[in-house]
Amino acid sequence: MLEARLEQAELLKKVVDAIKDLVQDCNFDCNDSGVALQAMDNSHVALVSMMLKSEAFSPFRCDRNIALGINLSSLTKVLRCAQNNDILTVKAEDAPDVVNLMFESSDSDRLSEYDIKLMDIDQEHLGIPETEYAATVTMPSPEFQRICRDLSALSESVSIECTKEGVKFACNGDIGSGAVTLRSHSDVENPDQNIKIDLTEPVALTFSLKYLSNFCKASGLAKSVNICLSNEVPLLVEYGLAANSYLRFYLAPKIGD
């Protein structure tokens, strides 16, 4: 059986909020190392990969591999019944029909319990190769969100160009064009504001802003975001979570321009 207790329901609420517009039904694959999720969007342009390691829970118990097929809009409805600071316990039997979510207020005077019916989801799992990216940009997540939002007003796509000079987000649209260039920046007093660019070779790729803006819904999960690029491979946008856990988004590049 599975029993996993999160100190704060907020983590799962934010994760589900960040991915629910991209993927609808997905398997939460549970085993003794934690809870993992991999799902593509309907048009197979983007892939979500989440890992909540067992250390992120206390306690965590999962004796056998269990796939919890859950509709994210149902899960959202139930998670809305939890306060951010509630303790969240997820429970399921070994061959479950339902998953049980229990919310306890931190001062323990309220206990809410919900069951969500599970679905049988036949999901394709993709092998994501270990990649040494040509460029990795680490920047404040709100800054990345803002750039995506600003450029979305002008165009449907953005070119991301990394050179030793910095990283340039540029777009071209009907009303004109725009570009934001960031250089490496280190602020000892506010390390959350740091911008780090690790570059082994220059990269230039074009991506859909609609998808990038969607990924930015995860901005509340981490103060900084890693943007990893290599020519002709999907972009990786990574939000690191506590206890070595993560929420990653992969996005296929635009081709032929």
Partner: peptide, 14 residues
């Protein structure tokens, strides 16, 4: 979609 790559062309099915 024209011009948009497909993620399955990059990551193989397991």
């Amino acid at each position: 979609k024209a011009g948009q790559g497909n993620i399955m062309n990059f990551f193989a099915k397991k």
